[in-house]
């Protein structure tokens, strides 16, 4: 699998590695997918990178590759920001080859990472017709998670026709941030758009939302999909290629 802009792949790994330290990559002719839960089984990430999004892609037989994302992140940090990236696994090999090439083809770096035997648990994610779908700048969402974490461990997300409100309370007191729907959309990237069938009010652990925000550099906008008594879906699109979707189980009243 070859990417002209290897930085896209580095951003994907950076977006996942805090939530899941290691994961099984499923490779087929259609592309690369991954599904993994965090160690406490509260959150899940689902990644799709379609074959047509790569400069070139070939997969002769389906493969499951157990990879340490922490190690892969370290290797990818050595990459120049404009480098292209090729990922290769040879038949019967127990390692993955990560090759980087500088833009003017005067530097070539190759790394081999040993593959791991991982027990993976796969969950069926039902198609959900969410009550509420919010789109907002991903930088804004990152900032809200950071700001709410000052006040408490949990954030309550409430939606109305007018907007969406994030609030948190704790020993210090409480705080809230309300975003109003953008009425005059000039730049789509900066817009806050709320599609609502029913109002929702759900509580989530802000620690996980903050981990999801590590994927924010992938996309200028984030999608949040919510329904009562259903895990939140937080989506970052990977330009033309696929997406990273995070799911988070809500907190419920004791």
């Amino acid at each position: 699998a070859r990417l002209l802009h290897g930085s896209i792949f580095a951003k994907v790994i950076e977006g996942l590695r805090e939530l899941v330290n290691e994961a099984t990559w499923e490779c087929s002719g259609n592309g690369i997918t991954l599904q993994a839960m965090d160690s406490s089984h509260v959150a899940l990430v689902s990644l799709v990178m379609r074959s047509e999004g790569f400069e070139s892609y070939r997969c002769d037989r389906n493969m499951s590759l157990g990879i340490s994302l922490v190690s892969m992140s370290k290797v990818l940090k050595t990459m120049g920001k404009d480098d292209s990236l090729t990922i290769r696994v040879n038949d019967d090999s127990d390692s993955i080859i990560i090759a980087m090439e500088s833009q003017n083809q005067d530097k070539f770096a190759d790394y081999e990472l040993r593959l791991m035997d991982l027990d993976s648990e796969h969950l069926g994610i039902p198609d959900t017709d969410y009550s509420c779908a919010i789109k907002m700048p991903s930088s804004e969402f990152s900032r809200i998670c950071r700001d709410m974490s000052i006040m408490g461990d949990s954030v309550l997300i409430c939606t109305t026709k007018e907007g969406v409100k994030f609030s948190a309370k704790g020993d210090l007191g409480q705080g809230s941030i309300r975003l109003v729907q953008t009425t005059n959309i000039e730049k789509e990237e900066e817009a806050v758009i709320i599609e609502m069938k029913e109002a929702v009010a759900l509580t989530f652990a802000v620690r996980y939302l903050s981990m999801f925000c590590k994927a924010a550099p992938l996309s200028p906008q984030v999608g949040l999909s919510l329904s009562e008594d259903t895990p939140l879906m937080c989506e970052f699109k990977i330009a033309e290629m696929g997406h990273v979707r995070f799911y988070l189980a809500p907190k419920i009243e004791d």
């Binding site: 648990e121 994610i125 009243e253």
Partner: peptide
């Protein structure tokens, strides 16, 4: 006080 639910409570094992 609220408690954290787990994800397999909502999604089934494949």
């Amino acid at each position: 006080p609220s408690i954290q639910n787990s994800l397999p409570f909502y999604f089934e094992n494949d």
